[in-house]
Design a protein around this nucleic acid. Structure first.
Length: 594
RNA sequence: GCGCCUGUAGCUCAAACGGAUAGAGCAUCGGCCUUCUAAGCCGGUGGUUGCAGGUUCGAGUCCUGCCAGGCGCGCCA
């Protein structure tokens, strides 16, 4: 956990602080340290055996609570409440800022003073761009690799979840002070690309009037036909050849490989490469456009093909051989993955001489490690979970330490429902709803918010009919509307710069709840980033919007009684600032009017 | 068969290394627009947290065993 920089604001201070990184935004951590210190004074060095500080569900228990006395009562040989009293006596609280009391069976409850809350809001308003979020104590260079869908078909709604998750995660990590890069690994060299090339060529022949039968493993989505028609448009009959004769194979994989070989022979290397390149380029562009209009941009697209031609695979194999981590068996080259925690040894070079999917991917991860990141996070679909131990094994075999530098996050599947029925999603069969269709139907904001509202290890049911039909009821509008209302208030008030005095007078229950919620924003971001869980942020924003709507509906702002207008405007401005900041992190717009 | 993930209101989901009365949205029922945007607010109904044990002051959360679903277990990617 990060430690706080700088000292806390003293009570009653009207001055606006120093620089934003010195602001005491993480009250929680500051309080936590004091409690630990008090525990040590009372009991000596002990393991608190659990969290020292929690957030009680019920506001009557204060803003923070500690259950440490309950847990430590036995080892201390004291009744819980008695121990809590002693801890309380030993606690050096910032006087006038936080009050504490013993409650219930032995909880310590903490309440933030209006002065402290006012200071938090002041700090927030002084830093609208960064929301006064103090950075982590140890910023890391982090690479987040996500989506990385094979360029052999359009992105579908499953990829959309990975895109929304990965982008939001990267934004969160950056917001708490890490140096973050977003990367897409483009599998543009593998067997799947050959199969796409074959599929496009066969469709192309069909466009020219040849009767064809697609091999079982070929791609058959509509987009393949689009690619084929593009070829016809640009190149006419340039790729026209007699349909090759390919013998029957019982194994679909071998069958399609035979077809690929036949297509390559028929077209010749140059024309084969041309079809390949055009299909690849068209897919790459489509993917990148889809992502861009989904609000997702990558700092880097790493091409497998370029990695290969740079010789990374050969040097990977050399390094593995030098470390005696590979062996030959039945004509194939195997990684001794079982020696590094994997369930099975893994083939790197097939007996046919080609590489498996794993080999260039491992080389890619080695290249990432060589680039010097402190951490690289892979966002994978849940179907890849068996793949993580393999990558870890490969890196360990190379002596790349520590193992936790590679973090694999698994995002569960999206099940799509349409007309009350599950829609199957298979790239190969071309039977899927694309990310583009989703965006066009439900809109980018709603789609991104919906995706990220659910925790990523949880399978997601995406009901298209519902998402379309209920779009005005979608939670994203609820949050956006709160922002709109803030903008309306400030617009009507006609103020550019807000005075930040008198904030201590915001003492209504609803105002206090909002102040507390705003003060917790920074620690919420830290929590969400540390847990790799953007949904924590999304849920926070929804809660904040809810508390704001409630307050707004019952509290006059522009016509507030004596002297409350300015503080209330400031409070609204604080809400607007956090909503804008938080929505930006999850790629959702914050409109000024709706 | 083995491994990973999941099981919470009618539906979709929250619940921060175990904490106080398990919360939202949708749906449903009833109120609130001459007053800062009703894409809103207030209230009601709705729960044996899959089942059975265990650990302890305390379990949706941890352990064991069942049940149900998803995914994986390839010289596919």
């Amino acid at each position: 956990m990060e430690s706080l920089r700088g000292r806390g604001r003293r009570r009653g201070g009207a001055r606006i602080a120093e620089s934003c990184r010195d602001l005491p935004m993480l009250i929680k951590h500051r309080l936590e340290q004091r409690i630990r210190a008090a525990l040590e004074r009372v009991l000596g060095a002990v393991d608190p055996g659990g969290p020292v500080l929690e957030r009680p569900a019920d506001p009557v228990h204060g803003e923070y609570a500690s259950s440490a006395a309950l847990r430590l009562a036995r080892t201390a040989g004291l009744p819980p409440r008695g121990l809590a009293e002693r801890i309380l006596a030993a606690l050096e609280l910032p006087l006038g800022e936080i009050t504490a009391e013993v409650a219930g069976p032995g909880f310590l409850n903490f309440r933030l003073s209006p002065t402290l809350l006012a200071g938090q809001l002041r700090a927030l308003l002084a830093d609208p761009k960064g929301c006064a979020v103090s950075p982590v104590a140890h910023p890391e260079r982090i690479l987040v690799e996500f989506v990385s869908a094979n360029p052999n078909g359009p992105l579908h709604v499953g990829h959309g979840r990975g895109a929304a998750y990965g982008d939001s995660l990267a934004a969160l990590l950056a917001a708490v002070g890490h140096h973050v890069e977003r990367e897409y690994y483009l599998n543009d060299a593998g067997r799947q690309m050959d199969i796409l090339t074959l599929s496009v060529w066969l469709r192309y022949l069909e466009e020219l009037g040849v009767r064809i039968v697609l091999p079982q493993s070929a791609y058959r989505g509509d987009y393949v036909g689009d690619l084929a028609r593009g070829l016809v448009g640009r190149h006419g009959r340039r790729f026209s050849r007699p349909l090759p004769e390919v013998g029957e194979e019982s194994d679909p994989d071998r069958q399609v490989d035979a077809w690929v070989a036949a297509a390559r022979a028929a077209l010749g290397e140059k024309d084969y490469r041309k079809v390949f390149d055009e299909a690849l380029e068209a897919m790459r562009e489509e993917i990148s456009e889809d992502l861009a209009s989904f609000g997702v941009r990558f700092d880097r697209w790493t091409s497998e093909r370029e990695l290969r031609s740079a010789g990374v695979i050969e040097s990977l194999l050399d390094r593995l051989r030098a470390r005696h981590a590979v062996y030959e068996n039945e004509g194939a080259l195997w990684l001794q993955a079982t020696a590094y925690g994997d369930e099975k040894d893994r083939v790197l070079v097939r007996s046919a001489g080609t590489y498996t999917y794993f080999t260039p991917d491992l080389a890619y991860h080695v290249e990432k490690a060589d680039r010097g990141y402190d951490r690289f996070i892979d966002v994978f679909g849940a179907d890849h979970h068996g793949y993580a131990p393999r990558l870890h094994a490969g890196l360990q075999a190379l002596g790349i330490e520590p193992p936790e530098r590679l973090e694999v996050v698994l995002v569960q599947f999206v099940t799509l429902w349409r007309g009350g029925e599950r829609a199957r999603m298979s790239t190969r069969a071309g039977d899927f709803v694309t990310l583009r269709q989703l965006r066009e139907e439900v809109g980018r904001d709603a789609a991104r918010f919906f995706y990220v509202l659910r925790s990523h290890p949880q399978p997601l049911d995406f009901d298209l009919d519902l998402a379309v039909r209920q779009s005005p009821d979608n939670p994203v509008y609820y949050v956006q509307y709160a922002h709109t209302r803030v903008c309306g208030l400030l617009r009507k008030a006609g103020v550019d710069t807000l005075e930040v005095q008198g904030l201590e007078r915001l003492t209504e229950d609803a105002e206090r709840r909002l102040l507390v919620r705003l003060a917790a924003y920074a620690e919420t971001l830290h929590e969400a980033a540390a847990q790799r869980a953007p949904h924590i942020l999304a849920q926070y924003l929804r809660d904040l919007a809810g508390e704001f709507h409630n307050w707004y509906a019952h509290t006059p702002v522009l016509d507030a009684e004596d002297g409350l207008r300015v503080p209330r405007l400031a409070l609204a401005a604080g809400v607007g600032t956090v909503l804008r900041h938080g929505l930006a992190l999850i790629g959702v717009s914050a409109p000024e009017r709706m």
